[in-house]
């Protein structure tokens, strides 16, 4: 793992100790890492606070001015580290918030990514969910603000949603704590392998799919097996080669130069 603790930020001050960042590929010692993603203003922080209580600390993401909040909780004898990602509408990496969220889900590989979304405007929130499902399949969806949706007479069929997305869906109203124990149960069942996911893949138009297949075939041999090659292919198609360059440069014995800005270099083996 790349050690970040001795990197300096712009002001020359030492950055927040990042030892608590999850180390992927490690055998679990009973501490599971759950990333909390979602759009802004969906009650993500309420979920975070409700789950972790006082066991949290905040700092900054390495090299970024983006606040990072992290906390722990235990449920049914399992310990969880919950990482609150910045609220974003997408993962296009066009802002530092989006970049932080994307890099964490992609490179730090949390055991589970919990996406919080707003029941009153589900459609907009689903864009992010679909994008996250392209990176990782260990996802649980938390449809929050159910109380507000009920007041506005909006009904969300969570069972149908779970069926459509191929991932577990839990309805919550985090402000009153409703549904959160169910969420913890689902997290538990996912880490012990009782719940398996079959995430829905976004299908693109014919022409694009052909290009994707062709490029993905070439790319796959170069990619480590933990990364979703279809997702990497899509980014390359968009002209975003950061991920490819990054992976190429971190292959053993193949490191021509430091290409990416330090900040992108989150932890990688």
């Amino acid at each position: 793992m790349l050690c970040l603790s001795h990197m300096k930020d712009q002001k020359g001050e030492y950055m927040i100790e990042t030892a608590s960042l999850p180390i992927q590929g490690q055998e679990h010692t009973g501490n599971f890492v759950v990333a909390l993603a979602g759009n802004p203003n969906v009650g993500k922080s309420t979920v975070f606070n409700r789950l972790t209580g006082l066991n949290q600390h905040t700092g900054n993401w390495p090299g970024k001015t983006v606040i990072k909040a992290e906390g722990t909780f235990s449920h049914r004898n399992q310990r969880y580290t919950l990482v609150d990602l910045p609220g974003t509408y997408s993962l296009h990496a066009s802002s530092s918030d989006e970049q932080v969220a994307r890099d964490f889900i992609c490179f730090s590989r949390p055991d589970i990514t919990a996406v919080v979304c707003d029941a009153t405007c589900l459609e907009r929130n689903l864009n992010l969910v679909l994008q996250i499902l392209e990176i990782t399949d260990q996802v649980v969806l938390c449809v929050n603000l159910l109380d507000e949706a009920e007041r506005k007479k909006i009904h969300v069929d969570t069972a149908m949603l779970a069926h459509q997305l191929g991932i577990p869906v839990v309805g919550t109203a985090a402000r009153s704590g409703r549904g959160l124990s169910k969420l913890k149960d689902v997290l538990h069942d996912m880490v012990i392998g009782k719940i398996a996911t079959t995430p829905r893949q976004v299908v693109y138009d014919q022409e694009l799919e052909t290009s994707i297949n062709e490029i993905e075939k070439r790319l796959t041999p170069y990619l480590p097996n933990w990364i979703n090659s279809r997702w990497v292919t899509l980014r390359a198609l968009e002209g975003d080669f950061n991920i490819l360059e990054y992976i190429a440069c971190n292959r053993p014995g193949n490191c021509p130069q430091q290409i990416l800005p330090e900040e992108v270099a989150l932890c990688l083996q």
Binding site: R124, V129, L130, K152, H155, D157, L165
Partner: peptide
């Protein structure tokens, strides 16, 4: 390409949403 990728995602979000969300006229 970017536009096409984004619009496919939006399209599918819309599809799913249409199936699972019911709004009574408020």
């Amino acid at each position: 390409i970017k536009d096409r990728i984004v619009s496919s995602i939006y399209q599918q979000a819309e599809d799913i949403s249409a199936r699972v969300v019911k709004t009574e006229n408020s």
